[in-house]
Design a protein around this nucleic acid. Structure first.
Length: 490
RNA sequence: AGCGAGGUAGGGUAGCAAGGAGUGCCCGCCGGGCUCAUAACCCGGAGAUCGGUGGUUCAAAUCCACCCCUCGCUACCA
């Protein structure tokens, strides 16, 4: 029984959550729930990244203070997570007082370590887009997003000596091969680090809605540096006080940061280097997940194909949506979302395989007036260790596949045994195997589909079990036929 | 351009590091079985020059070389 600390990125609150946010957060939720089932001491952190010029401008436009503005947006996130049953332990906001204190302390430690110096930041600025670009990003010397002229801007900035940590990072990667996950991302990062690291500009003078730089209040701290430190401030670092009233400092180093592949660089290079500088151990693993396309196209506001998790949960149920996200593609890979594919999985796997199985088993058992007992026979098809190992390795879609193999073997067992032709002890034995299989399946799917697990348990008349209960034992429940778990979508 | 990932029946995937008959899974299609169940469940079948060319080998989806195609990343006012 170990400690398990999992994080989602803290999301930039410029818009409401879409399927991408939901995907990361559901995956983290399942890892957290699974580790709770296995008896681990779990802490699950999510939150919102609330500083930056964009929020400042958006707030101005609405005649609100930035704080009022982000207060409203943070609630939107919390509501969505509630809707899809996210069981986070703390929700960290970068505009909170405890976070700001943590950032100031962290940056001061970096400075004491001699890793911060004053210099000039130089970049190409596109005035209409209000965005900075690097030399490399420019397309034919023009703005890469709108194609218009850009101008060179130079301003005073404090820099972090990222370059100093090149060797130390490479050593850390080699000693901790799991840190760069999935493995196919490792070479990508290593090669780029080997090519050399440039020092990082970590303060700004133009952004006011941000955390002040402690030793020069004319400057504010670059939002990414600010945001990364939330993984520490969210568990109460350094004071023991946190916004969740929970001193959880002992959970560090994090077991796994779940991040999108677009922000892998920040988490696997900049963040561990910052931690080295502040004298803190890096996280054990950063897992970069893939992206969703929608109906084969890139998801974007202008195309109008952004998938709203709340709409999906309303239409198909939170469990079905969660199941689809985890089953359709491996966490690390890209994949495609479509309602057609979602409906296919609901009808084929949730209604037909799972729902129908529970239905037929509960009906058979509820008509039986003998004692449901016997000898385990179906247990040979259950591979709980493998499922556990797969989830430990973030292979959630394969884990579901493995659970479904067990489910399918149970469905086959019904046909092979033809319990409708049996009676007495013989029937009691078949029902025993089926009911126990149903009870174990309910435990195994509970992290993925918590609402469904509750429904199955209530039909079987048993309490929610843990991973220890995933074995064939005596059945002591009371069967009550209930509603269908999932209805077919026409 | 550099770096990385990928191209396997109609669609989607696993297999590739440690070569051994195209082996597996899901959907779809065709045929059969069953009647407990949500027209569901179970069984069988058809369908693939494993992106292309060349090489290594007794043997290549798997190793090597070259080529074609698809996709991602390329960092700093997110």
């Amino acid at each position: 029984m170990g400690k398990f600390y999992v994080t989602t990125p803290i999301y930039y609150v410029n818009d409401k959550p879409h399927i991408g946010h939901a995907f990361t957060t559901v995956a983290a939720d399942i890892l957290a729930r699974w580790h709770r089932l296995s008896g681990d001491d779990v802490f699950f952190l999510t939150g919102t990244d609330e500083h930056g010029e964009k929020n400042q401008k958006a707030a101005d436009a609405k005649g609100k203070t930035p704080q009022e503005f982000v207060d409203e947006l943070a609630v939107v996130y919390k509501d969505v997570w509630k809707k899809i049953n996210i069981s986070y332990d703390a929700f960290q906001r970068t505009s909170s007082a405890t976070h700001e204190a943590a950032v100031a302390e962290f940056v001061s430690r970096m400075e004491k370590n001699g890793d911060i110096y004053k210099g000039d930041y130089e970049g190409w600025y596109c005035t209409p887009d209000e965005t900075f670009f690097t030399e490399l990003q420019l397309v034919n010397g023009k703005c890469p997003s709108c194609g218009r002229e850009v101008k060179k801007i130079r301003e005073e900035s404090y820099f972090f000596k990222l370059s100093k940590y090149q060797e130390k990072l490479l050593q850390y990667y080699d000693k901790n091969p799991e840190f760069l996950s999935p493995s196919f991302r490792a070479d990508e990062i290593k090669n780029r680090v080997k090519d050399g690291l440039k020092d990082l500009s970590i303060t700004r003078t133009a952004v006011k809605w941000a955390i002040p730089f402690p030793s020069n209040k004319e400057h504010t701290i670059y939002v990414w540096v600010d945001a990364l430190i939330s993984y520490l401030s969210g568990i109460g670092w350094p004071s023991g006080k946190s916004d969740s009233n929970n001193d959880a400092r002992a959970y560090w180093p994090a077991s796994v940061h779940l991040v999108g592949k677009e922000i892998n660089w920040f988490h696997t290079v900049i963040w561990p280097a910052m931690l080295f500088s502040a004298g803190i151990e890096p996280p054990k693993k950063v897992f970069a997940h893939g992206w969703w396309t929608v109906d084969g196209k890139k998801m974007s506001k202008s195309v109008g194909n952004v998938v709203d998790p709340v709409e999906m949960a309303d239409k198909y149920g939170a469990d079905a949506f969660r199941y689809f996200l985890m089953r359709e593609k491996p966490l690390g890979e890209d994949g495609d979302f479509s309602e057609k594919a979602l409906i296919a999985r609901i009808n084929g796997e949730l209604a037909s395989d799972l729902g129908n199985f529970i239905s037929r088993v509960v009906t058979l058992a509820s008509r039986f007036d003998g004692k449901i007992e016997g000898t385990p026979e179906l247990n040979v098809h259950l591979n709980a260790e493998r499922i556990n190992a797969l989830i430990d390795n973030q292979e959630l879609s394969v884990a579901l596949e493995e659970i479904w193999l067990f489910l399918k073997s149970a469905n086959k067992y019904v046909n092979d045994k033809s319990p409708w032709d049996l009676s007495g002890k013989e029937l009691g034995n078949v029902l025993y195997n089926l009911i126990e299989a149903a009870r174990i399946i309910s435990i195994l799917i509970s992290p993925f589909m918590p609402e469904t697990a509750v429904k199955i348990n209530s039909q079987l008349g048993v309490h929610a079990g843990t991973l220890k209960d995933c074995r064939f034992t005596d059945f002591n429940g009371k069967i009550t036929k209930g509603e269908h778990l999932f209805n077919r979508v026409q």
